[in-house]
Amino acid sequence: MAAPLGQYKMVLFARTTDKEILRGAQNGGIVTALLSYALDTGIIDGAVVAAPSRSKPWRGKFDPWRSEPIVAMTRDQLLSARKTGYNISPNVMMIKEATRSYGLDRVGIVGVPCQIQGVRKAQLYPIGMRGVPDKIALVIGIYCMEVFPYQSIVQIVEDHGGVKMESVEKIEIGKGNFTVVTERGRTIQIPLNETRDLEQPGCHVCLDYAATLADISTGSAGSPAGWSTVFIRTKIGDEVWKRAMQAGLFETKPIGQVEPGLGAVEKLAVEKITRNKKTLEDRDFIGTKGLRNPYITT
């Protein structure tokens, strides 16, 4: 396998200058700002994003801890799609819908690394993806260590954390903890090594952290609070980023200047890839026959 951070043309810290977006953003508001700009300028005419579930309402609102994909075609829809939980939203499911049912010609999509793998496979091996490969206009990746099935989140919050799902205001995963903040301001921290077993098993064979196949990938790792690290990876990514910069959409800082920086991102990537390669090796020794390895190596 290639470099843990993948190929990229440029990496930097950035945050959006769009106050409305920044206010509700988890970090630098990169994804929402980029998509909103791409929608405004016609780079895309819609984007597949994870949004709070509408099929399962919660406290009278869409359930933020159970995300599901939508095709967002307005800035408002993008804004409402922020702050989703740490369970997986099957975003790639909507990619053919976007081109066929919604009739979009230029589709944006956001996803964690495995979903970006799905998008690129849909382009190179479009076995069941008629009309999709040539209509992918912008692919934004988000770093990912692992996700939890919805039922695992319930179990962590209610059984380990001892609070009801209904009282959860915020969930954060990072710095070694699964952190739950309740409506009334109580903070509960559960060490991630206690929740490891409840992670989605498919994540344990995942060999990408930094969304290396995206046009642009981003996340909070390595960046100062309120900022994001951003990798510009492809020609499309480069063009979109340059245009957005010219439009004054982002403030940036060179990555060398601020701690913890690129090293922190690389450390997480290496940690994930090393651990999951080990899982793949261990799978070879389950029983006497081992389990199928989906990755082709030459």
Binding site: E68, P69, N87, I88, P90, N91, V92, M93, M94, I95, K96, E97, G111, C114, Q115, Q117, G118, K121, A122, I127, G128, M129, V132, V147, P149, Y150, Q151, Q200, P201, G202, C203, H204, V205, C206, L291, R292, P294
Partner: peptide, 27 residues
């Protein structure tokens, strides 16, 4: 895929199905 612990819930399969036989339930 699923029986072998490899599925990560991306939804590519559901998009690919020509007869919409696949929905995503609990990821």
């Amino acid at each position: 895929v699923i029986n072998l612990g490899l599925c990560m819930g991306c939804g590519s399969c559901a998009a690919a199905c020509p007869v919409r036989a696949i929905t995503m339930e609990y990821g």
